[in-house]
C-alpha cells in the first residue's frame, strides 16, 4: 500500500467537507430583511447572519487544509515515484493527473477567494475540485498505483508539458463552475425569484467577469501546454505534430476557447451566452481529459 493513497483519500474527505460547508454557508446566508433598516445602502456584508460568517470561515479553513493535504499527497507520491522508477512527476497517470487538477482548481479558488472575498463561488468551484478528486478515487486500484513509466514518457518534458496542460484544465474548470453559477442565478432572477440562497451569490456581472478571467488564464496555458507537447513529440518521435487524438482534442478545445475570446469582443456575447459557452467548453475539456483516454486510441492512451 502506498502511503500517498491515504493522503489522497483524506484530501477527498476534506474537500467533501469543504463543499458541504460552502453549501451550508450559501444556505445560511439569508438576507435578514426585517433587520435591515429601510433605505440603508447595502454593503457587501448585507444580511450576513452570524452563523453564515462562521460557517464561511470554517469552509475556507477546511478548504485550505484540504489543499495542504492534497499538496502533501502529491509530494509523497513524487517521493514514491522517485523510489520506484527514478522520475518524480506526480501526474504521470490518470489518477495522479486528476489529483493534480483538483489541487490546481482548489489553489485557484483559494487565491480567488482571498483576492475577491466572495465565498459563495466555493459551492461551485470547490464542488468541481471535489468531483475531480472523487472521480480519481473511483478509478480501479491498478490505475492508482505508481507504475514505472513506459520509455516514451520517461523524460523531463513530462514535468512541464503535463503540468501546464493540466493547470489550464483547472482554469477551464473554474470558468465552467462560474458559468453554471451564472446560469442558476440568472434563471432565478428571470423568474423573479427572491430565493434567499441566491442572495449570497455575487452579482451577475462579477460572475461573468471572473469566468472570463479564468478562461483568459486557461487559454495561454493551454497554448503553452500544446506547444510543449509538440516540442516533446519533436524530440521523442521525430515530428512535432502527428494529429494523434489527444493532441488534436486539445487543439479542438483551444479553438473552442479561441472562438470564445473573440466572441467576447462582439456584442451580445457576455452574460448568459458566454456562461452557456463556458459550461460547454468545460464539457469539451472533460472529454479531452477523460473521454479521449478511455474512448479513443493514440499515443496518450496509456494514461
Amino acid at each position: 500500500m502506498l502511503r500517498s493513497l491515504f493522503l489522497f483519500d483524506m484530501t477527498f474527505w476534506l474537500y467533501l467537507a469543504a463543499l458541504g460547508l460552502y453549501v451550508g454557508y450559501v444556505l445560511a446566508r439569508r438576507p435578514n430583511m426585517q433587520l435591515a433598516p429601510a433605505g440603508h445602502p447595502s454593503g457587501p456584508m448585507e444580511g450576513e447572519s452570524g452563523w453564515a460568517t462562521q460557517i464561511g470561515q470554517v469552509a475556507t479553513i477546511v478548504t485550505i487544509f484540504g489543499w495542504v493535504v492534497n499538496t502533501m499527497a502529491l509530494l509523497t507520491r513524487a517521493y514514491e515515484r522517485m523510489q520506484i522508477s527514478g522520475t518524480f512527476a506526480p501526474w504521470s497517470n490518470q489518477f495522479e493527473a486528476m489529483a493534480y487538477v483538483s489541487w490546481a482548481i482548489i489553489l485557484g479558488y483559494v487565491l480567488l477567494e482571498l483576492r475577491y472575498r466572495i465565498k459563495a463561488i466555493g459551492a461551485f468551484v470547490v464542488g468541481i475540485g471535489f468531483i475531480a478528486m472523487g472521480a480519481a478515487s473511483l478509478l480501479p486500484y491498478r490505475y492508482q498505483t505508481a507504475e514505472p513509466l513506459v520509455p516514451a514518457l520517461n523524460s523531463y518534458w513530462i514535468y512541464i508539458h503535463v503540468s501546464v496542460t493540466l493547470t489550464s484544465y483547472a482554469a477551464f474548470a473554474m470558468a465552467g463552475g462560474l458559468g453554471l453559477m451564472y446560469l442558476l442565478k440568472e434563471r432565478a432572477e428571470r423568474r423573479g425569484s427572491t430565493s434567499s440562497v441566491l442572495a449570497a451569490f455575487p452579482d451577475l456581472e462579477t460572475i461573468d467577469e471572473l469566468g472570463y478571467k479564468a478562461i483568459m488564464v486557461g487559454f495561454p496555458l493551454l497554448a503553452f501546454g500544446i506547444i510543449l507537447g509538440a516540442m516533446w513529440a519533436n524530440y521523442a518521435w521525430g515530428g512535432y505534430w502527428s494529429w494523434d487524438p489527444k493532441e488534436t482534442w486539445s487543439l479542438i478545445v483551444w479553438l473552442i476557447y479561441g472562438a470564445y475570446i473573440h466572441a467576447r469582443m462582439t456584442r451580445g456575447w457576455e452574460g448568459r451566452r458566454a456562461a452557456i459557452y463556458a459550461v460547454f467548453g468545460f464539457l469539451m475539456v472533460v472529454f479531452c481529459f477523460w473521454g479521449v483516454n478511455f474512448l479513443l486510441s493514440g499515443l496518450h492512451a496509456y494514461a
Partner: peptide
C-alpha cells in the same frame, strides 16, 4: 471580421474531431 474568425475556429474544431473518431 471577427464573425468569420469565430466561424473558422468553430468549423475547424468540428472537422478536426472527425480524424479522432475515424482512424486515419
Amino acid at each position: 471580421s471577427i464573425k468569420l474568425a469565430m466561424f473558422l475556429f468553430i468549423v475547424l474544431a468540428m472537422t478536426a474531431t472527425i480524424g479522432t473518431v475515424i482512424q486515419q
